[in-house]
Amino acid sequence: MEKAFALVKVEEDQKTDFASYFLKGEANYWWETMRALEGEDVVTWDRFMELFLEKYFPHYIKNQMKIKFLELKQGNMPVSEYEAKFTELARFVLEQVDTEEKRAKRFQQGLQPWIRSRLVIFELTTYTAVVQKAMIIEGESVMS
């Protein structure tokens, strides 16, 4: 929704109305109830998001996603697939990946040991560089 808001330049005080317009079925019923319970003329976007995430993305699910990220290893996945999964789960543990260097190091730690051992000599500090070099190393081993 935030991307759509930026694209069409929705004002802050209109965001809740725009987003709630797209709710269907059970989500729409939930919102009608929540809006009545809030007892305000205007429910701010921040409050809407807080209520929405509380309902549809509870704390225990966030914790599960954090655990998945912390346990994430490349395993049998190609580097590209591992990178996609890493990116998907990283948003749940921003404190673990809030700098380029942390992100790069964390990604490198989850790589297969044979790839990681070849990467370490480069002393890479950016995420993009680590991913690219890992893909090159993986690709070269396939061609050998």
Rank of each mutant, 00 (worst) to 15 (best):
residue 109 Q to R: 14
residue 95 E to P: 01
residue 54 E to Y: 11
residue 89 L to P: 07
residue 69 F to R: 09
residue 67 I to N: 07
residue 66 K to H: 05
residue 87 T to Y: 01
residue 112 Q to N: 11
residue 137 I to M: 08
residue 105 K to C: 02
residue 26 E to H: 06
residue 97 V to L: 03
residue 114 W to F: 14
residue 53 L to W: 08
residue 25 G to V: 03
residue 118 R to T: 10
residue 68 K to P: 00
residue 86 F to L: 03
residue 97 V to N: 04
residue 68 K to D: 13
residue 44 T to W: 04
residue 46 D to F: 01
residue 95 E to C: 07
residue 45 W to K: 05
residue 53 L to Y: 12
residue 79 V to W: 01
residue 41 D to G: 14
residue 18 F to K: 06
residue 38 E to M: 13
residue 96 Q to T: 08
residue 47 R to F: 04
residue 61 I to V: 15
residue 136 I to G: 03
residue 120 V to Q: 14
residue 79 V to S: 03
residue 66 K to R: 15
residue 25 G to W: 03
residue 14 Q to I: 00
residue 64 Q to K: 12
residue 54 E to F: 07
residue 17 D to K: 11
residue 138 E to T: 08
residue 121 I to V: 14
residue 63 N to T: 11
residue 118 R to P: 00
residue 18 F to Y: 15
residue 126 T to L: 06
residue 42 V to P: 00
residue 111 L to K: 04
residue 86 F to Y: 14
residue 41 D to Y: 02
residue 95 E to Y: 06
residue 73 K to S: 07
residue 129 A to E: 15
residue 56 Y to E: 05
residue 68 K to T: 04
residue 115 I to D: 03
residue 123 E to P: 00
residue 67 I to D: 10
residue 94 L to N: 06
residue 75 G to I: 04
residue 78 P to K: 12
residue 19 A to Q: 10
residue 19 A to V: 12
residue 50 E to A: 12
residue 92 F to G: 02
residue 49 M to T: 14
residue 76 N to F: 07
residue 37 L to Y: 03
residue 103 R to A: 06
residue 103 R to W: 01
residue 110 G to Y: 01
residue 65 M to D: 00
residue 61 I to Y: 11
residue 84 A to L: 05
residue 87 T to H: 02
residue 133 K to N: 10
residue 106 R to V: 07
residue 59 H to M: 09
residue 15 K to G: 05
residue 117 S to E: 13
residue 84 A to Y: 01
residue 61 I to M: 13
residue 123 E to D: 13
residue 127 Y to V: 07
residue 92 F to S: 02
residue 85 K to Y: 00
residue 53 L to V: 02
residue 34 M to C: 11
residue 16 T to L: 07
residue 35 R to W: 03
residue 20 S to C: 15
residue 55 K to N: 06
residue 25 G to L: 07
residue 77 M to Y: 05
residue 92 F to H: 13
residue 71 E to F: 02
residue 27 A to P: 00
residue 24 K to N: 10
residue 35 R to G: 01
residue 43 V to N: 04
residue 74 Q to F: 04
residue 33 T to G: 09
residue 123 E to A: 12
residue 83 E to N: 10
residue 110 G to T: 04
residue 107 F to D: 05
residue 80 S to G: 02
residue 27 A to Q: 10
residue 38 E to I: 06
residue 111 L to W: 06
residue 98 D to S: 13
residue 85 K to W: 00
residue 53 L to R: 13
residue 39 G to E: 08
residue 79 V to T: 04
residue 64 Q to M: 12
residue 135 M to T: 05
residue 138 E to G: 06
residue 97 V to S: 01
residue 47 R to W: 00
residue 91 R to A: 08
residue 66 K to V: 14
residue 38 E to S: 12
residue 14 Q to G: 01
residue 86 F to V: 06
residue 120 V to G: 07
residue 56 Y to K: 05
residue 128 T to Q: 13
residue 38 E to K: 15
residue 31 W to P: 01
residue 131 V to K: 09
residue 27 A to I: 05
residue 125 T to L: 08
residue 51 L to F: 11
residue 79 V to D: 01
residue 131 V to N: 07
residue 128 T to I: 09
residue 89 L to K: 02
